[in-house]
């Protein structure tokens, strides 16, 4: 299995990653070898095996429905590049 340069670019784009052109062949090779491993595993008969959702053999604990958080906006907002009227500002998103 060998990923094309175009596929590597798409994967990077979906992941929000900026990559250098000169590194693309290396990424293509590394990613392809991961896929080769997956292909190898596909040969195993897994009909009777329940897919593993989590490596820990445990189940989710539930939290009671209570409001316990207080307003910490004043602490969070200085971390953002730009805020106004309590809103976080981001480059314009248009639908």
């Amino acid at each position: 299995m060998s990923l094309s340069e175009e596929e590597v670019r798409k994967i990077a784009h979906l992941g929000g990653l900026a990559i250098r052109d000169e590194n693309i062949p290396r990424y293509a090779q590394s990613l392809s070898s991961i896929l080769d491993l997956v292909n190898q595993m596909e040969a195993v008969d897994t009909v009777e095996i329940q897919p593993m959702a989590h490596p820990l053999d445990a189940i989710q604990r539930l939290r009671p429905d209570e409001v316990r958080e207080t307003d910490q906006r004043a602490e969070f907002q200085p971390l953002a590049p730009q805020v106004e009227n309590g809103l976080y500002l981001v480059p314009k998103v248009i639908e």
């Binding site: 939290r63 409001v67 958080e69 307003d71 309590g86 976080y88």
Partner: peptide
């Protein structure tokens, strides 16, 4: 455990988990 009440002032009911801060872990509401 942040409140879901409607109509609060912007971002006053958005805690570290809701903001996606690093290291935060979700815990499911029963």
């Amino acid at each position: 455990a942040a409140s879901t009440a409607y109509g609060a002032e912007a971002n006053t009911q958005a805690c570290a988990i809701d903001l996606g801060m690093p290291g935060m872990l979700p815990v499911l509401n029963a």
